[in-house]
C-alpha cells in the first residue's frame, strides 16, 4: 500500500498580491492535518508506506518535515522557479506529474481546501489529470479486499462509494482528530533532512505548462472587502415604527 498525501505550506498573514512564501510567514495548511492523520491510520491498519508531497519554494520543506514528525515516511517537494505563480490548474499539473513519478501508488489524499486560497480545486483537478477515480469530502473509510468503501455527506444525504485502487480522496477536515506530534519525533524530522526535491526536468514538464505561463487564471489584484453596515433609527410612536419596519423588510424581500 502506497499512500501519497498532498499538503501545502500556507501563508498565515492576510493575503495580498504577489506574496512570497518564506519560513516565518507560512505553516502547514490546517485542513491537511486530518488528511495526514487519515493516511497514518490507513497505514496502521493496512501497512505500506506514506509519502508527503508538496509544491512550493524550498521553505516548503518545513511542512514536509512536520509531516514526517507526525509519522509519514518520506517527503517530496516539487520545486522550481518556473512553478512560481501557478494557479490551481498549473499546480494540479505539477502535482499530477510528481504523483505519476511516484508510481506505483494506491491512494492519493488531499485536503478539501487551503486556508490561504480556498479554491478546493487542486484535488479534483489532479485526480482528473491522473485519470483515477475521486471522491470528495470523505468522512469515513472502510477497507475491503478490492479497495475501499468511503462515505461522504452532501446536501443532507450520505453517499457511499466503492472504490478500487488507485484512487484519490479529499478528506473532510472534521472526519478525524489529528494526532499530537510526539516531541521526540520533531528533532529527527528536521535534523535528518532527506526530502527529495524535484525540479521541472525531473517532473518532465515544460515551463509553458506551469507557473504564470501555464495558468489560465490571472489574479489581477487582491484587496480587502469593506463591510457596509449601517444603523438607522426609525422614528415615530411604537405603531408607526412597527409599520415602517414591516414595510422596509417587505420592500427588501426579507419578509412577505
Amino acid at each position: 500500500m502506497h499512500i501519497i498525501v498532498c499538503i501545502k505550506s500556507v501563508i498565515v498573514k492576510a493575503p495580498e498580491a504577489g506574496m512570497v512564501r518564506s519560513h516565518d510567514s507560512t505553516e502547514l495548511n490546517p485542513f491537511d492535518r486530518p488528511v495526514l492523520e487519515t493516511a497514518l491510520r490507513i497505514k496502521e491498519a493496512r501497512g505500506g508506506i506514506t509519502t508527503a508531497l508538496s509544491m512550493g519554494p524550498e521553505s516548503s520543506i518545513s511542512v514536509l518535515s512536520e509531516a514526517r514528525a507526525m509519522g509519514l515516511d518520506r517527503g517530496v517537494l516539487a520545486c522550481d522557479p518556473a512553478l512560481a505563480g501557478s494557479d490551481t490548474l498549473a499546480t494540479s499539473t505539477a502535482l499530477a506529474a510528481a504523483i505519476d513519478k511516484l508510481r506505483p501508488f494506491d491512494l492519493v489524499l488531499f485536503g478539501t481546501r487551503t486556508s490561504d486560497s480556498d479554491t478546493g480545486q487542486v484535488g479534483p483537478q489532479a485526480a482528473l489529470l491522473l485519470g483515477i477515480p475521486l471522491v470528495t469530502q470523505v468522512h469515513s473509510i472502510e477497507y475491503i479486499d478490492s479497495g475501499l468503501y468511503v462515505e461522504r455527506t452532501v446536501d443532507g444525504f450520505i453517499e457511499k462509494f466503492e472504490l478500487s485502487f488507485p484512487a484519490a480522496l479529499t478528506i473532510h477536515p472534521a472526519s478525524v482528530q489529528p494526532r499530537d506530534i510526539d516531541l521526540a519525533d520533531i528533532g529527527p524530522a528536521f535534523e535528518k533532512q532527506d526530502t527529495k526535491i524535484w525540479n521541472l526536468g525531473d517532473l518532465e514538464l515544460s515551463p509553458d505548462q506551469v507557473g504564470d505561463a501555464g495558468s489560465p487564471t490571472k489574479v489581477l489584484s487582491i484587496s480587502k472587502s469593506k463591510r457596509h453596515k449601517r444603523c438607522e433609527f426609525i422614528k415615530g410612536d411604537t405603531l408607526e415604527q412597527a409599520d415602517e419596519l414591516i414595510k422596509r423588510l417587505a420592500e427588501s424581500g426579507m419578509i412577505g
Binding site: H23, E27, I61, D180, L183, I186, F190, E191
Partner: peptide, 9 residues
C-alpha cells in the same frame, strides 16, 4: 523551523 514547529505543536 524546528523551533516554530515545537511552538505550534
Amino acid at each position: 523551523e524546528k523551533h516554530r514547529v515545537v511552538r505550534r505543536s
